[in-house]
Design a protein around this nucleic acid. Structure first.
Ligand SMILES: [Zn+2]
Ligand SMILES: [Zn+2]
Ligand SMILES: [Zn+2]
Ligand SMILES: [Zn+2]
Lengths: 159, 159
DNA sequence: TTGTGATTTGTTATATCATAACTATCTATC
DNA sequence: GATAGATAGTTATGATATAACAAATCACAA
């Protein structure tokens, strides 16, 4: 269950708890967690890599949940807006959040070899980015922080 | 000439020195700094905001330097590959580097109101991102660090 | 200075990512 | 069940990016 890294974990639990968390958040906040939105989140939770909107749409199409791009993009818009899913800008792709419902500033590590993506967190106004922004008089509203490289598995020459 | 911020500066000088730096870097490294590549860099140096590939292509088209997307994308590929231009992932757009020829890890601040973009620098393995990567055993090869918000001018209510 | 291979450019076509606009349906609330 | 607002279906199109191949140009050395 280590959300900070690439370690193995109880993935079934990981999917179930992700859906549960969003279920209860939506109930509490009067948000409509519809069939399409739920299924899109579930699809993303099942992967530990980012999926493009058209890959998600392909699942939906096969399941009769929608066949045109706006269906997928609208569900993704909802999920991103409420912080249940993040967009990975570098990949033009989407990944389920590891801390749904909790306000946070994510950082992503993207493995260029196996395409897995890990989410970690940072403090928005701290560190070098915070220092640079203060020096420039810049007011940060959102950040995109993505590192590309090799995950522990893919650095290992024995694999 | 303050590359860290949004301050005003001698922009003519800024264009000239940018081109000069790349000229000499290419001469030293046996790179072909061709007419199209040079003009694309010059177009980007003239702006302090990021330009999309098709905006750049429109300039080239009007000047008879090329009319099809691959012309612009190939010039941009060259410029990005050698670090003379950076891609702003959040905007799918490109901006001239403020430190051409020097190895560095850029950070960008993007004003959502006036669309100006400032480049600053960070140390790749330091700070929160470095700490997070070490904790995860992740080997960073490249980073995308972009902050969106308001530049000093656009925060000022008197403007 | 001319031949040669490597690089760059021109061009056509197409792949990939994303949204506008309008209609129909569903949902919450009264 | 009427009503208003939100969600989903559908068509069309816009925006971003690349594959593939032929033609021109360049670097370098014979
Ligand atoms: Zn998992
Ligand atoms: Zn998250
Ligand atoms: Zn730079
Ligand atoms: Zn501004």
């Amino acid at each position: 269950m280590d959300s900070i890294g690439f370690a193995s974990h109880d993935h079934t639990r990981c999917i179930a708890s992700g859906l549960e968390a969003v279920d209860s958040y939506c109930a509490q906040n009067r948000l409509q967690f519809t069939a399409v939105r739920r299924r899109v989140l579930e699809i993303l939770l099942q992967q530990h890599h980012a999926l493009g909107a058209y890959e998600i749409l392909e699942y939906l199409r096969q399941e009769g949940l929608g066949s045109q791009p706006p269906v997928a993009y609208r569900a993704l818009d909802f999920l991103v807006k409420h912080g249940f899913v993040h967009k990975i800008e570098r990949l033009n792709a989407f990944i389920a959040c590891m801390h749904p419902g909790e306000p946070h500033t994510p950082v992503f590590m993207i493995c260029r070899k196996c395409a897995s993506v890990a989410e970690a967190q940072r403090e928005p106004m701290q560190g070098q980015l915070g220092a640079v922004a203060r020096a420039a008089g810049f007011l940060i509203e959102r950040t995109v922080v993505e590192a590309e490289g090799l995950c522990p598995k893919c650095q290992d020459p024995s694999e």
